[in-house]
Nucleic acid binder design. Structure first.
Length: 524
DNA sequence: TTCCGACAGTGGGGTCGCAAT
DNA sequence: ATTGCGACCCCACTATCGGAA
């Protein structure tokens, strides 16, 4: 262990440079076993729980502070790097903790000073590491999953137990610290705690109800998939806390949820649900409306858009943990506690045809599609298992590739991100509706990189612009209002299905067609 | 030996709050 | 009042590793 040299009166502890070296090693191998070994090796040299916690979070690609107010722009111009490493892990964590609480007039300048002080003591490699860490772009092939595996291997504790504790605790680092310092006995402290967010259960995708039913097994429950914000509501007596999918606390922004939960006939409860803005006729507002209202802090007043909470699962009630129970039993508990108008409409069936009719009805009512849920699996916090499967309505269009941007990371050297345009039937011009990088195989990336440069008309440092010749079939979930694109519309979740070399630019779909979808005039 | 679950990476559009201009 | 940045909401898809079958 090297002592800190020439620091600011620091006493020692692990150097940041040791973390940076390990991170470089992680990026240098694709083997997850090797990554786990490297992580375990460094964790073994940590001297105290605090240090262990910081190292665990850094090697998972995160800062310990949820928000610091420092981003890529602030870090773009940093002072000259130091020649030799001296920063300790503890010093770096403290520096970010201080940055995180800076606010008010003049805070930008003070942030600048604090960042310069920190980065002035960092070597070139350390500066680069911190930049990527802050930006959440470490890309060393190790995040929470690999970290959990590393901790399991280092301690000999089954991965499943570590994972379960992590999901219930809602965070990886405290669990890692507990087992690294106390062994398996350290896991005993982690269970569902009313008031503390649990990683929500996630869903796989399927393209049809029949395919979804094949994954979940039958009979299964189908529920409308609402296009809103995922919420997890905790009540302990008179205290209510509402969390988002990433366990951000949004309680003060959603009084509707607080009052709904306080009205329930239970002292303690943990509920999973969806929050959505509805029009006066009961149809859902565009996601942007729900998102905007939910993001607004002081969301009261006459002009405020009301939100409606729906609940679809229950994890705890009055001292009893329910998340280990099967889906059917949990829903019985839910039905007894939650009034029908606050539950998501649901159909239990083993018939794909009946299921499809339920799906079609949900879509007709303006919803995204359905969730298909196994009746037999427990609530698998944080898992994306086959117990829950989503089926969404999608659209497809033939569009023109207007340009393509150079990729990053494993896509470096390939043209990756496509600019997509529809034809304006009145002017004959092509109008950009958004970009996509999704759905491309390596083979396709190779092909388009070559082909697009043959069609190049000009380029800048990010983008190659093309002659309007390449037609691509695009899938997307819907059309949203856009403040950025010229038609005032953008595609939501666009992805490539295939190139259409059999089609000509005149064949691509029109802006007018897209507008019709936007206005809900087209059913596909 | 092949199959498949879990993970990480590669980015997309939109909105609000805040500080500076 | 406007602008730029940071943070967070929604997210689809492919490649890969390593254990399961």
């Amino acid at each position: 262990m090297t002592e800190s040299v020439g620091g600011m009166g620091e006493t020692g502890g692990m150097l940041l440079s040791e973390v940076v070296e390990t991170s470089t090693g992680l990026a240098g191998t694709r083997s997850r076993l090797k990554k786990a070994e490297l992580i375990a090796g460094l964790l073994a040299t940590a001297t105290d729980p605090d240090e262990t916690e910081v190292v665990v979070t850094y090697l998972s690609g995160e800062l310990r502070q949820r928000r610091t107010g420092v981003g890529w722009r602030t870090l773009a111009d940093a002072p000259e790097p130091a020649e030799t490493p001296s920063l300790t892990v503890a010093e770096v964590d403290r520096a970010f903790a201080e940055l995180a609480v800076l606010a008010g007039p003049g805070s930008q300048a003070r942030k600048r000073e604090a960042v310069d002080a920190l980065f002035g003591r960092a070597t070139e490699a350390e500066q680069q590491f911190l930049r990527l860490l802050v930006g959440g772009e470490l890309r060393q092939g190790a995040l929470d999953g690999v970290m959990a595996d590393a901790v399991a291997r280092a301690t000999g504790i089954p991965l499943e137990k570590i994972r379960a504790a992590t999901m219930l605790r809602g965070a990886a680092a405290p669990v890692a610290v507990a087992v690294l310092t106390e062994g398996e006995a350290g896991l005993a402290q982690f269970g569902l705690e009313v008031g503390r967010g649990v990683q929500p259960m996630l869903a796989q995708s399927a393209t049809s109800v029949a395919e979804a039913l094949a994954k979940t097994g039958t009979p299964a429950a189908l529920e409308w998939k609402l296009d809103g914000i995922r919420i997890q509501a905790h009540r302990d007596g008179s205290k209510v806390v509402v969390y988002t999918r990433t366990l951000d606390d949004i309680t003060v922004r959603v009084p509707e949820v607080v009052s709904a939960v306080l009205a329930l006939d239970a002292e303690q409860v943990v509920l999973d649900g969806e929050l959505i803005a509805l029009k006066s006729d009961g149809r859902p507002e565009a996601f942007q409306v729900t998102g905007s209202r939910t993001a607004t802090r002081a969301a009261t007043g006459p002009d405020s858009v009301p939100l409606t909470p729906y609940f679809f699962d229950i994890l705890h009630q009055d001292g009893q943990d329910l998340l280990g129970l099967d889906g059917a039993t949990r829903h019985e508990w839910l039905s007894k506690l939650i009034p029908e108008e606050q539950r998501i409409p649901r159909l239990v069936t083993d018939d794909a045809e009946a299921g499809h009719a339920f799906f079609a009805d949900a879509v007709k009512r303006g919803h995204e599609g359905v969730m298909v849920k196994s009746l037999t699996v427990p609530y698998e916090a944080g898992r994306r298992g086959s117990g829950w499967v989503k089926v969404k309505q999608t659209h497809t269009l033939d569009l023109l590739v207007l340009a393509a941007e150079w990729g990053h990371g494993r896509r470096t050297g390939w043209l990756s991100n496509l600019h997509l345009g529809a034809r304006d039937s009145e002017t004959g011009e092509f109008v950009m509706l958004g970009k996509t990088f999704k759905g491309l195989t390596d083979e396709l990336l190779r092909w388009q990189t070559e082909r697009f440069q043959e069609l190049e008309v000009r380029r800048d440092s990010y983008t190659v612009y093309l002659r309007p010749e390449v037609v691509v079939e695009i899938a997307f979930d819907g059309v949203q209002t856009s403040p950025r694109y010229p038609a005032g519309m953008a595609l939501r979740f666009a992805r490539v299905l295939r190139y259409r070399e059999d089609k000509r630019p005149d064949d691509v779909d029109t802006v007018q067609t897209v507008r019709a979808i936007h206005e809900g005039a087209v059913d596909e």
